[in-house]
Design a protein around this nucleic acid. Structure first.
Lengths: 322, 322
DNA sequence: TAGTAAATTCTCACTTTGAGCATAATGAGG
DNA sequence: CCTCATTATGCTCAAAGTGAGAATTTACTA
């Protein structure tokens, strides 16, 4: 009588290589879908916990043992992607995993640039072109299309708060909000897959190469969470080798947050937070004066309640003073 | 061949009355369990989204329409509570909902004090007695019981960081960490229900009146999330009437965070953050000089990226300066 | 009319930010 | 060997933000 219920376990496995955040993708196991995040169904008999089930699937599909793993969100909209595979109702439990660059070799799967999938999220070189040339204009159009004044006002407000405006500024953590807004406005391909009967034209192919299922939504959730958590948990160190220079640390954070930081102040924060300690050794391949190699001070976990790489109010546009 | 899979939708519905945070409980629908949070199974056919399913169950069981709702976490450990009802594997998707005190009347169900269920979380009057007289000593014993030095050191570290120590201080957001630690240490009744064959004695009845299933764990998750989010989202206002005095606002925040705040500084933060605006009206039943009634400035949502009731470094013990 | 209870205002001594300038150490190119 | 470009590190400064409390108001109560 009742439709069958299934649960998928999905992993956004993130690393940072060459100043780019990357996510591990695999060819779709079924073979008929585009590239996907590693995922597989929860086996109610075999998987003792959800996380163990996830680890098993990742191990099987990529050969990778995960260290840091964190649950993100459970998606279950009936009319959105994934679901309704063959008449069954399918939920997706999404996870974020962090791995070191070192592990990138020899595994199966490919490391896709996160910003190739979510291009509007990288503001390290200023506002990206896609945003200025494509997204903002179309969002403007979407606002104007609103049926009545109230709708238009509401839409304008959402656009301003998620994508920033003169008064609001860019909140790097609202990655999911931005993706969902683009989805609603019909600016990402996923929107078409889901509401087939839409009358709108296809979005620009180019800033739009979705992953299988709702995996881009999962990635957006992962990036948002990661950006937020970076500030109060020492997650970056899961992505860095044992020792690293302060610049390397900064570049890694910048890659994830998608924003440039003030060098001296960044170092001051890291040092004042006693997050790292110098190893007398130097790294000389810096291109300039050699830099000292530092390592993460694990003891900090026992000293302070919420240690993280304190991102300040972010250098660009600040919310104006009270 | 494969075991049946089911998904439950569970709601921690929180309000604040009389300076106490409360959670809505209902008599267990099945009738043979203790008091529970409102919950019910996801209907794969009827419920279009998980959240709609949740709202439907809450409506049915309590007659309440929810406004603010947020997904918390999905629990699925096989050997822990809820699961394995009648041979099926059961997951629990937990939600947090916030409602106004006004709505507390006429509904079915009872408003249980959150701190009656999680007594060690209320530090408004200083460290609660349960903590000093029962929990800390037992945690100390649990640390000493560790098989080897490494285990003991590890346990000590976890206790210090979750429950605070001289060097670490109390992190009000680690509600779930604390509950899980108590669970592992066998200091909460849930631990016995799950591992029947334990040799330890029953924990003190008294600081231990668990809800059905894993509902205390869900409540711990909810409180932790709420405490964290308060700082960067204007959630408190979901719990307050249209207008309120600044002291009322402060008391509500204190009730949730479980800590006392410095009055003048709290007001400064709220006003500088332009979170509220005065209505010329006064509330005279204050017992002293009448206080002005304020209202939430919704516009703030369009002005700043992360408005919240900035809880400062919290008055008591601070992490020592670098 | 004095006393009590809050609400509101202000101070004050630090700390923490946000921005830059100045110096130091290397490798590359002449 | 000297000069430059390049990156590492130090140091300074002014502007905000914090943590604690004292001082002043305005009602209500006895």
């Amino acid at each position: 009588m009742s439709r069958e219920l299934r649960v998928g376990l999905h992993a956004a496995i993130v690393a940072v290589t060459g100043e780019q955040p990357r996510v591990l993708t695999v060819p779709d196991p079924a073979g008929d879908l585009p590239t996907a995040l590693p995922f597989g169904p929860l086996d109610p008999d075999q998987h003792r916990t959800l996380e163990l089930g996830l680890r098993a699937w990742v191990q099987e599909q990529t050969g990778m043992e995960l260290a840091y793993v964190e649950q993100l969100y459970t998606f279950g909209d009936r009319d959105r992607a994934s679901s309704d595979a063959d008449g069954a109702r399918v939920l997706a439990v999404a996870y974020l995993a962090l791995v070191r660059e070192r592990q990138l070799a020899e595994e199966r799967g490919a490391w896709e640039s996160v910003y190739a999938v979510l291009p509007w999220e990288d503001r390290r070189e200023g506002e990206p072109n896609v945003l200025r040339d494509h997204i903002r204009p179309r969002l403007g159009a979407w606002v104007r299309e609103g049926a009545d004044t109230a709708t238009r006002r509401l839409r304008r407000g959402r656009v301003d708060i998620t994508f920033g405006s003169d008064s609001a500024g860019w909140d790097s953590e609202r990655v999911l909000d931005r993706f969902e807004l683009l989805y609603e406005a019909g600016l990402v391909a996923e929107a078409y897959r889901d509401r087939a009967g839409s009358t709108r034209t296809q979005p620009d192919p180019g800033f739009d190469e979705p992953l299988a299922l709702d995996h881009r939504r999962i990635l957006a959730t992962a990036l948002g969470r990661l950006r937020g958590k970076l500030k109060y948990r020492p997650l970056v160190f899961e992505l860095l080798p044992e020792t690293f220079t302060l610049l390397r640390l900064q570049r890694t954070v910048e890659a994830l947050v998608g924003v440039r930081l003030h060098k001296q102040n960044f170092r001051r924060l890291v040092e004042r937070g006693r997050l790292v300690e110098g190893t007398g050794r130097l790294e000389s391949a810096t291109g300039g004066r050699p830099a000292e190699l530092f390592r993460f001070r694990r003891e900090v976990l026992h000293e302070r309640p919420a240690p993280g790489v304190g991102l300040p109010g972010l250098p660009p546009k600040r919310s104006r003073r009270a």
